[in-house]
């Protein structure tokens, strides 16, 4: 079953960590997941101050600066993974380094 693991963390907290160490951790996890065929894709996102939101209402396009919702933790990246079931996805989410400082939201894909 395919899941999108959305990686949320407070950007302020993230700014304080030793980035080299953390990127290293990420690389290790991704390599392991690739090796076992679980990792399909995954990317890091630019900070939320780069976000733009768009809505179309009555044919009118509304463009606004910022994310769709202001939250304490911001979406900072994602993994797309292929897991056996939710237990497995929970296990993989727990291996993502940011789980230790933020939150990983697990969502199954609509079409598998």
């Amino acid at each position: 079953m395919k899941y999108l693991l959305m990686i949320y963390a407070n950007e302020a907290t993230w700014a304080e960590v030793d980035e080299a160490v953390w990127l290293d951790r990420y690389e290790t996890v991704i390599a392991e997941l690739k090796e076992s065929g679980i990792f399909l894709d995954g990317k890091r996102l630019k900070n939320v101050d780069s976000a733009t939101s768009v809505q179309l209402r009555d044919g009118q396009k509304l463009v606004s600066d910022g994310p769709f919702a202001e939250t304490k933790e911001q979406l900072g990246g994602f993994f797309l993974v292929d897991c056996q079931n939710l237990d497995h996805a929970i296990e993989v989410a727990g291996q993502i380094p940011s789980a230790a400082i933020g939150t990983i939201e697990i969502r199954p894909l609509w079409y598998q």
């Binding site: 897991c83 079931n85 237990d87 199954p108």
Partner: peptide, 18 residues
């Protein structure tokens, strides 16, 4: 129905939590 909670016995390593 949607989250992928399998109708199966948990694997050994997930058993304590489950």
């Amino acid at each position: 129905k949607h989250a992928g909670i399998g109708f199966e016995l948990p694997e050994e390593r997930h058993l304590p939590d489950r």
